[in-house]
């Protein structure tokens, strides 16, 4: 699949943002005054920034509001609704923390649950697709939840929890890669089943349907950069999990946390780029490509 920058930004930043908002909503950190403004602002900025980035990949962003209507069947629609509901539900808690109003924290608890639901719906947009066997697996939601929770715990300054969650994140990434590498064969789609000609003999492309590119090839049959997969996996693990974990274990200081989060983000971008670039769509079978 084509690793569109807008979608990578969206999933990484919103995931981190909603993870942090969940931590703030639960009151794991309870900042006051301008510190509250800064921290809640960071959470809202990441979540909303990611959502805005996602609208830039639309063909008609002016109609994006229509995406709130199909919650009964569509994970993308549910995602939009859950995201907006989370942001609205947490607003009074943020306001109360900032201005010291002392309002009830109950909306924060509900908002935290909604934030987790948002992360789940985002992951299901990908995990629901049978056509992309690598994504169509429980390790996809596992990875999205692990990223959000580990990132959220880091931003909330929960060193010990963050380290544990970073270990879980590393495990979820390795699991996603391990099972992902076997998924296509497991699903069983081949050129034979795609053309229905497999019963007659071995199918190969004789003449391509077109000699220039098209939407399908650009969007779903992205094969650039796969040769560096092994290096990128190591890089993603080291930057997203290992280095931030070591920093948190070694130094307990806000600057150290900031360094850990930034390193983690770079690793998260690498991992998410791989998530897309490595994912093979079954339509590639018609072109003799994967």
């Amino acid at each position: 699949m084509h690793p569109a920058p807008s979608v990578i930004l969206f999933t990484v930043l919103s995931g981190l943002g909603f993870g942090f908002l969940a931590a703030l909503g639960l009151g794991i950190v309870q900042p006051a005054g301008w510190a509250a403004f800064a921290l809640w602002g960071l959470g809202y900025g990441l979540a909303v920034g990611g959502l805005l980035a996602s609208t830039t990949h639309l063909g008609r962003p002016d109609r994006a509001w229509r995406a709130f209507s199909q919650w009964r069947s569509s994970w993308l629609s549910r995602e939009g609704i859950a995201a907006v509901a989370t942001l609205l539900m947490l607003a009074p808690v943020a306001l109360s923390d900032w201005l010291g109003l002392g309002w009830s924290r109950w909306p924060g608890i509900i908002g935290a649950v909604l934030a987790l639901a948002t992360i789940g719906t985002t992951s299901m947009i990908y995990a629901q697709l049978k056509t992309v066997p690598r994504w169509n697996h429980w390790t996809t939601p596992a990875q999205f939840f692990a990223f959000a929770l580990a990132g959220g715990a880091m931003l909330a300054g929960q060193g010990a929890w963050a380290v544990i969650l970073l270990v879980i994140l590393a495990a979820s990434l390795v699991a996603h890669w391990y099972f992902g590498d076997r998924r296509f064969a497991e699903v069983g789609a081949t050129m034979g089943s795609a053309t229905g000609l497999g019963a007659l003999g071995a199918v190969s492309v004789f003449d391509p349907a077109h000699t220039a590119g098209n939407y399908l090839l650009r969007e779903m049959i992205y094969v650039v950069g796969r040769k560096h997969v092994a290096k990128l996996r190591v890089l993603a693990l080291v930057l997203a999990c290992l280095i931030p974990g070591l920093i948190l274990l070694a130094v307990a200081h806000p600057m150290a946390t900031a360094a850990a989060v930034l390193t983690h983000l770079i690793g998260a971008f690498a991992a998410r780029w791989l998530f897309f670039a490595q994912a093979e769509h079954v339509v590639g079978l018609y072109y003799g490509k994967r």
Binding site: M1, H57, L58, G59, R60, P61, R63, A64, R66, A67, L76, I125, Q128, L129, K130, T131, V132, A189, A194, N214, Y215, L216, E219, M220, H281, V282, V283, Y286
Partner: peptide, 25 residues
Amino acid sequence: ACIGCGLCAWACPYGARELDAVAGV
């Protein structure tokens, strides 16, 4: 009503849907 998100094209195993580059739908 189409916003051109492309998710339907991702969901189709047969490559039956193509997003038009001019109309964005």
